[in-house]
Structures are given as structure tokens and as C-alpha cells.
Nucleic acid binder design. Sequence first.
DNA 1: AATGAATGAGCCTTCATTCAT
DNA 2: GATGAATGAAGGCTCATTCAT
Lengths: 228, 228, 228, 228
Amino acid sequence: MNAIATSSLAKLPVDGTKTRRRRKDARPSELTSAALDLFVEKGFSATRLDDVAARAGVSKGTLYLYFDSKEALFKAVIEEGIVPTLAAAEQRVAGYSGSAVDLLRHLLFGWWQEIGATRLAGVTKLIVSESRNFPEVAQYYHDKVIVRGRALLRYALQRGVESGEFRPLDVETAIDVIIAPLLMLVIWRFSLCFCGRETDPAIYLETHFNLLVHGLSSAGRDGLGGAL
Amino acid sequence: MNAIATSSLAKLPVDGTKTRRRRKDARPSELTSAALDLFVEKGFSATRLDDVAARAGVSKGTLYLYFDSKEALFKAVIEEGIVPTLAAAEQRVAGYSGSAVDLLRHLLFGWWQEIGATRLAGVTKLIVSESRNFPEVAQYYHDKVIVRGRALLRYALQRGVESGEFRPLDVETAIDVIIAPLLMLVIWRFSLCFCGRETDPAIYLETHFNLLVHGLSSAGRDGLGGAL
Amino acid sequence: MNAIATSSLAKLPVDGTKTRRRRKDARPSELTSAALDLFVEKGFSATRLDDVAARAGVSKGTLYLYFDSKEALFKAVIEEGIVPTLAAAEQRVAGYSGSAVDLLRHLLFGWWQEIGATRLAGVTKLIVSESRNFPEVAQYYHDKVIVRGRALLRYALQRGVESGEFRPLDVETAIDVIIAPLLMLVIWRFSLCFCGRETDPAIYLETHFNLLVHGLSSAGRDGLGGAL
Amino acid sequence: MNAIATSSLAKLPVDGTKTRRRRKDARPSELTSAALDLFVEKGFSATRLDDVAARAGVSKGTLYLYFDSKEALFKAVIEEGIVPTLAAAEQRVAGYSGSAVDLLRHLLFGWWQEIGATRLAGVTKLIVSESRNFPEVAQYYHDKVIVRGRALLRYALQRGVESGEFRPLDVETAIDVIIAPLLMLVIWRFSLCFCGRETDPAIYLETHFNLLVHGLSSAGRDGLGGAL
DNA sequence: AATGAATGAGCCTTCATTCAT
DNA sequence: GATGAATGAAGGCTCATTCAT
């Protein structure tokens, strides 16, 4: 389910039934999971560690058996929340053999299924809200998530251009245009949910994808393609 | 000196009001201006009123002469930061006589000039970050900003449809698609500035507008327009 | 009464009656005074700042208006407790014109009256108990108190030797022998009070002084004097 | 390995007791030995049981197999640290047949060799620093150490007076004068080591002893003897 | 109106103590 | 006997809020 628990469990004897040990291995993810919820809901500063502990079903002191400080917990939330999924995505992309359009669709809707629609999307909102207070974490997120995420899209776009599926285009700006509506979906989910009308993510995403495909297609006409 | 203070001062009579009087009238704006900066930079919880007062050049106690509480200050920041500009935009739109496309361009680039590129855009980041903690403020922002902002766009789109400039379309989804990249620009400015590459807002906005015009145009072909 | 309050009051307007201002000036010494009592009684670690504040008649938060941390309070206790008295002693010694024996008596019994028998002696116990945890403070105490205190005694001894009152002697060891029983008096007062029999300080000091005078006297015989 | 453990191990049967058994028996001494070091270095309150356990090479929980509480550990440190040595001294004194002067020398330098110069002297510093927080321990120390220690000195002095070696004197004050410089040596070692100049204990002790012998001697002249 | 000293509730963090394994 | 995960009470420190001046 998560990287830490998995790797630790791997070291256990085959039976792996010791309740105490399994508890200890599971604790960090239980705690980061609880923390993610509350950080997203209230923000980092406004989240009390009492509440994190209570939500994870442990005492306040237990937090400090696994994390040195509130800030360390925050970093662990970011780290554990995103990296594994991205790594998985990279592996899948590396072995992909279909068309660039299909790969693009795969990336977009895969992101939605594995991140956008799940609790993990909260990490994105966290970064948006708190990165100013945690430049170190922002740098980490940039290096581990943004750079790698953009690389995935870049790979798909360049592959499409080389195969002739897509027309020549400004790849980096195209990446911006692709990502922006995805981030907005997340922000709507977590922040503006009470602020605007209910937007159906499926319709929104499909619209976005259609726009992209038409805009990028080498079969498209000049009006749109030139804009990119 | 700053946008908020300036707009307030603009309401003052032209002749020489006593310095003392001007000082007194300017105080609230000076305070909300300082608060906006810090709320955007650190978040609501992590901002100390000492710092707000210090930045505004007054003592901490003075804050309470103008605002009942930290939360009241937050509400005032939102209120003062956005409403005046929106009201001005509404007046301009009401008296607008050009084409719908021009009106749309006017709205987009006007927003960028008067809000997106200024400190006021920080309010948007504030709402994104803090609305969960302030449902009342979120409701206020929804009623006073989102509803009215969407109404402006809706007016432009409907006018275009009626005049035949735009094809018939799903207006509400179109509004979503128009707004999302604008919000992303602001978020990049305030939150992900260290996270991603430097995106040139002018190019980005122009690209966005071109996409829209082509997508909405009744002269366009079915592929794209249908997607909307 | 204490250095800080005095210097601050000097800056006040002549009437000097503002209750608020006088309070603020007096606060630091009220706080260090309360802290001295409790640090001596319970030790640094075992002293709670709540108790210090309560003893000074203020709230816990008030402490932090004057001292950045518990450790800063500790340093202030040492600083304020000893330095002024030593400075006063140095001035008196500098202007002393009597015999070396009288000067020595003056120093010993003066120390007892102004420090040994007062609350200030608690500072000595503090240093004994806590210097390991505060090497910085120990260094400060060494530089500001021990070095200067030994210098006073050294001056008296050398003056006696030069005048022929005292025989030639190992001055530094003599200083050790002079100081040790003084420190023990303080330690008995603050730490071993319940541990041993009641020792009358006056008799003890007089005995100590007689020993010294006979031991140091150039009129004394070799057996004892040579030992020093 | 260390004084405390050694003395305990000394009670073990000569033959090869099982390692496990020896371990079990040695545990309490290993723990009190580790605790003594840390209590002396940091003070009782500032010493963490984690550190005591770590220094003794056991887990924190193990401490509670041997001591009911931190305070019980403290008492055991005092108890184990001093009593055995004093008992041994009493036995040697009881069987002593030499002169009173030799007995006095034996007591002073014996104390230095077996306590003053060893880790056990730390107990003295502990009492000085912590007795206010542990009146019960202070009482214990008084009854078991001070009373018995003074009795040893009293015995030697009275024996000297009776034998004519020493002149008639105020025995209790003489005991004070004898003890004070010894305690100061310990305090210099543990607390003021960084505060003052390096005093050579051997020279200091010899000086002290010479002073005493001359001062106490019935062959001495009135000046000094009368002072005592 | 403006100040800033004072307050005290609340939070992060530590650590002596317990107990299931 | 030994472990170390878990606990929770307590303490240092912060900061929104009040109020006498």
C-alpha cells in the first residue's frame, strides 16, 4: 500500500504475525495518512498534533517515536504521498508501445485515477498552500514530482511529434497548458468546492483531452495549432 | 503607495484634507494591505499580528481599534481586496458597446492588469489556501466574487452567442475552461514560483485567448467547438 | 538596589511617577530575584517558569517580555546577582589606605555582609550546581567574578608582603586557602543545612581569619608559615 | 570496571559463577554507576533515564526491573556510592594502633585515595546540588555519612587529646575546619574545574594537613591553637 | 486615537513510567 | 529477565487579545 510499510514488511519472517511488530511497521503510514487529511483540511499551522494523533488512534507522544517534529511529519507526508505513484507511472510509460495520443490519454486519466481522484491529490493542495513556508520541501517537490511529471509529458509529446501524430510545437508551453486544468481540478476539489458550481470531473477532463488532441493533431488546421 | 490604500485614498476629496485626517482614514487600508502580504506569504495561522502591525508601522494594539479580531482582519482583507475592482469591472462591462470577442479580450487582459498581475491576486491564493477554515468567508467570496465574475463572463458569452459571433455552447463549462488557466497563473505566481519553470504570463495569456477565440468562434469547424 | 533599575530610572523625567513605567523598569529585577530563589532551592532544570512568574506576581507570558528563554533568565540571574557588588568592592579597595591586615579583614567580613550572608550567595551555589550545564555561564562567572575576586585578595596579600606585614608566600595557594572556607560557608547555608550541625558563621569566620593572620604574619614562626 | 561494580563483584564467590548470574548481580551496580556519572554531570532533573540506560547498555525498561523510580535510582546511587567505603574506613580505624597524628593523616589521605580522587566523590557533589530536592536523601546522607565521618574524625581528635598529642580544643569546630577544604577539593574537581586555576590536590592537601598538625599540636604556640 | 505591557489559553515537545510481547 | 513501543502529564514558549495610560 505504501513504500515504507512494504519495505519493512519484506524484512519480516515469513509468518509475519507478530502483532506488535506489524503495528510498528504500519504506524508511520497511519500517521502520515492522518496528517495528510488534516494538513489539507486546516493547513499546516492550524493543524494540531493532538488531532493527528487522535485521528491515527494513538497518543500524542507516539508521533515523536516516528517523526522528529511537526515539520518532519510534513515532509514525510509529501514524500510518502507522491513519489511511489510517480515511480510507478514512470515504469509504465517506459514500457509503453502504443500511439502518442493513447499515451497522453493514459497519462491524463491515469493521473486522475491514481492521484487526482484520491486523497493523494491533497498533497498538491498542500504544496500550493504551504510551499512558501517550506522552501526546502518545495525544492524537493520540484525535483521529485514536477520535474519527473513534466518529463513524462515531454516524452509523450516528443514521441508524438517524431511519429508525426503531433505537429511541431513549443513543448514546454504545451506542458503548461496540459497541466493547468489538472491542477485546477484538484484545487476545486479541495479548496473551492463550496465556492463554485459542481463541475463534473469526467466531463471536464474529457473536454480538456479533446481540446488537446485537436490542438496538437498534425491533422488539425492552422488556426488552433498555431496558437500553441 | 499600494493598491488598496490608493483606491481608498481615491475616494477622498481632492482638496487638502488634514494630514491627521488622511492618516486616520488610511489606517484600515494600510493594515489590510500589510495583512494581505503576510497572509499570502505565510498563511493565515502562521501570520502573527505583531508582524502585521510592524509592517503597517503601528503598534499591535492599534489593530484592535479597527478590527475586532484576526478573523475580522482576514475578512476585511478579502472584502477590500476584491470588491472594488469587481464593481469597477461591472460598470465598464455594463456600458460596453463593442463586439463580444473584444469584450472577452477586455475582461481577460483587464483582469490580468488590475488583479492578476497585482498584489490583489494574493487574495485568490488566500481563498485557495484558507477557504476550508473560513466557510463563511468562502461563502462571501463565492457570492461577491465568483458569482459576479462568472456573471461578467456569462454576459460576454451570451452576448456573443446572441450576436452570432459565438456558436451555441455550454456556457457554464466554457466559463470553467476560461477561468482555470487564469487561476493557475496566479497560483504559479504565489505558490509554485520556485517549483516550476518561469512561464511568461503574456505569452501564456495570449495562447489561452487564441485557443478560446478559435474554440468559441462560430466560424470554427465542428471538431473543437463540439468539445465545448 | 540593582544596576538595571537604577540606570533606567535615571533616564526618567524628574517626577518619575508613572506607575506603568516604574513597573516596567522594576520587572527584570523582580523576575531575576524570584528566579534566584527558585533556582537555588530546586536547581535550574527542576524550576518551572510558572513558579518563577507566580513568585514575582506576574503571568508566565510576562517573563518572555524580558527574557528570551529560561536560559537567558539564568544568565541574567548570575549577571545581575554578582557583578554590581564586586564592582563596588573594587572601588572601595582601590581607595583603601589602612594596613594589609585590616584590608584583608575588610574583604572577608565585607564579603560576608554583602554577599555571604545575603541571598546573593545563592549565585555561588548555582554556579557550583549548574556550571557543567552552562559552560558559557561558567566562563562568564570565571571572568567576571573569580578573576576579579582573586585579584582583590591578591592585591591585599601583595601589599602586605611589600609592606612587611606578611612574610613572602605562595600567593595563589594562599588565595585558595582563603577562599575555600568562605565557599564552604555558603554551601553549608544552601545545601548542607540539614546535613550537618549548626555552625555559627561568625565564630567560623573569626577562626578562619585568625588562622590566616597568624599563618601569614611575618612575626609568626617558620613551622606554620612555611606550610603556606 | 568501575568502583561501584567492583566493590559489588568483590562480594561474589571466587569460583566461576555463571556469566548470566554475574550479569544479573552486576546489573544494579552498572546502572547506578552510569547514573552517578550522569547525575553528577547534568544534575538529577536534567538527566534522562534513556541516557542512563544507554550508558549502561540496557533498555530503558530494564531500569524499572531494578529501581522503582528515578528517585529510587538516585537514592541507590547515594547509598551504594558511599556506605561501603565508610564501613571499610570504620573497620580500619577501629583496629588502628598508631599515633593520633598518623591516624589523622591516614583518614585524610585515605579519604582522598578512596573517595576524593575517585568517581565516588561525585556523590558529594550530588548532595551539594540536590539535597534541597531530596530532604529524605539528605537525612540519609547525614545519618550514614556525615555523622559517621565526623565520628571518625572526632575519635582521632579525642584520642590525640587524651594521649597528649593534641592540646585541648573545640572538637566540633576543629572537625569543621578539617572537612571544609576536603569538600572544596571535590567541588573544584566537579564544578569549578573550568572556573579557577588548576590546583594541585597533593600540594593542597599537604598544606592543609601541615596547617592542621601545627594548629592542633600541643607543642604548638598559643596564637594558632587558641584560635581553634 | 494610540500605545505596549500584561495576560492566559494553547501548542509543540519531552520524558518518566507502564506493559504486552 | 529483557525489551521497546506506547502513554500522558507537564513544561517551555507563543501569540491573540485586553486594558490602563
